[in-house]
Design a protein around this nucleic acid. Structure first.
Lengths: 338, 338
DNA sequence: ATGAAAGCGCTAACAA
DNA sequence: TTGTTAGCGCTTTCAT
């Protein structure tokens, strides 16, 4: 197989301990004579020695790997097209991890049978949790997790401040969107979300929706909540809103598509606003007006919090909350006939 | 720390050997009484036991991880915007790896100091090599690599058929582009590439360019090769071509941008064709006509070849070559005044 | 059906 | 300055 430390030691006429010290110890505390050290280094080169990282990781109980549980609780998204939420996050993860000398591993469900296994079997020094689905199953998973973790789109408090978190300011972001629509003259505004998939953030955003609507003296009752899985029904009659805010860019895109299929023109007859504002919004037709959250930056900073946790520090701050902005594109305009 | 096998064994009143057999052996050869097995399983659950994967990997000399050396020999590309070459490949890698129970790790250069380290230190069961930069440094790296690898965009023969490879049919792809331009009526066609970055494929594509030009009886001398790093100069005077084929989508986009900056309209005054045809081509204005290669599929199949290598089989076939097609978009039209 | 023993390659505490 | 020893947690012969 490949060359081990023992062989290098033999060739240099020393013990493996010395080889380890010469090759891998911090320069300060080597305490090996330069002559010996040189002999060892030469032997290592001659033999093409390379440390067995798995042996070392095993002994040191660290892997320099950060795991991203991918597709747990939702479909695995594509990177090369379509909604770019995950791709944006990944860019941030990669940047943050590489800066700190960590690598990023995308981990399928079946690795180690259950996600819990992948989380707790020593494979990773830390984990990124970006599933926004707070099912009992997922909560239980987080509870049992024994490695440092950072939460994205879930507040630290939801899990007893056990893990640091990175979120955007949903309330403020939604406020921007409502303000924009109200300024355009909209009064009948709906909020589309997936009723059967309880994203943590859809509650927050729905709540923000209600509060900002009422701030403008607008109605935001049951009728203003549009179930995304029931859009066909919704559009079967003339929509009861002149504008719809989607819980994320995927949903907003779906709303646009379904509306257009029904012959409802966007933005003339229906304005649509999304949440996320990635490059995907630019690809849609019309281009989607969307609330921007700095996903790549959030991903990078999440890794930095995680790195703090992994090195035993208490992450400071425990929560990072990013303000949103609004990217106005072609999917919003003044409402018809007003 | 976390629960070890020894503790489970103690609780169940057996030895670690038995625990290992019960919990991790293939169902067939367990050879443990059902009563004991049940006791062990219960003890494991009670204690929340989870195998230490690093210990196992170390012993078994396998990691179930596939490494993607990322940004070696080129800038690390973004996933969420811009040229989507790497994102498309990644989608394929992820799909192929997950299907086979492997995870995908993106590995920064600094991991283990040199890329060679990351390649040969036992971290990965296999590697994907998609750097198309055949520098002497890179060649040396491949030579020293001691784990199974699959090459993308580099033919197996370039490295003595030591590794399987996945490529597209560059000649056929370029042929499609030239045919398209000639059909439109173009005669003065240039090929843009980065003269100072010797991508393996730019030689092949340049060669294909020459051969297909001459098939049509068109000139393809030095003047038809446009150095992408010198585009400002090229466009300082009226371009000597009515159409330019870029070595990849990034370059083609750059050609378009530089032309438009100079007030040369695309496609009216200059037709542009790219290579790769990802979603990025749709984002450009005008949308970029481009040679399509099925990157995601290629990535997935590359992993499958790699998995064969990793399991000790000779990959069959050793080379996979994919035909290209041409996606005609808005960046090509009939030449002006002809 | 179960156990004992060895060892994967490395590093660190301790000894010389 | 160098060596000895032990052990990380697991799996696998080889006994019993």
């Amino acid at each position: 197989m490949s060359v081990t430390m023992r062989e290098v030691a033999a060739k240099a006429g020393v013990t493996p301990t010395v080889v380890s010290r010469v090759l891998h110890n911090k320069a300060t505390a080597i305490r090996v004579s330069e002559a010996t050290a040189e002999r060892v280094r030469q032997a290592a080169i001659d033999l093409g020695y390379r440390v067995n990282i798995m042996a070392r990781n095993f002994r040191e109980r660290q892997t320099m790997m950060i795991g991203v549980l991918h597709g747990v609780g939702f479909e695995r998204p594509l990177l090369d097209r379509g909604p770019r939420y995950f791709a944006s996050l990944m860019d941030g993860f990669i940047e943050g991890a590489f800066e700190n000398g960590y690598s990023i591993t995308l981990c399928p469900k079946l690795l180690g049978q259950t996600p819990e296994d992948a989380m707790s079997d020593g494979r990773f020094d830390g984990l990124v949790w970006y599933s926004t689905h707070p099912s009992e199953e997922n909560r239980e998973m987080l509870r049992r997790c024994s490695v440092p973790m950072v939460l994205i789109h879930t507040r630290a408090a939801e899990y007893g401040n056990r893990y640091p978190s990175v979120t955007c300011d949903n309330d403020q972001g939604v406020g921007l969107a409502i303000d924009h629509l109200v300024e355009l003259g909209h009064k009948k505004i709906g909020f589309a979300y997936e009723a059967h998939i309880p994203f943590s953030e859809s509650f927050l955003r729905a709540e923000a929706f209600r509060s900002h609507m009422s701030r403008h003296g607008l109605r935001a009752g049951e009728c203003e909540l549009v179930d995304a899985s029931d859009l066909d029904n919704y559009f079967a009659q003339t929509p009861r809103h002149t504008a719809i805010l989607g819980h994320n860019e995927t949903l907003a895109a779906l709303v646009m598509q379904k509306a257009i299929e029904r012959g409802i023109s966007v933005p003339q007859q229906l304005s649509v606003v999304g949440f996320d504002s990635t490059a995907y919004c630019e690809e849609l037709s019309p281009k989607l007006t969307s609330i921007y959250q700095p996903l790549a930056e959030m991903g990078r900073d999440a890794i930095n919090l995680l790195v703090q946790s992994m090195s035993g520090q208490k992450p400071d701050p425990l929560e990072l909350i990013y303000p949103c902005s609004l990217d106005i594109r072609g999917s919003t305009s003044i409402p018809i006939g007003e």
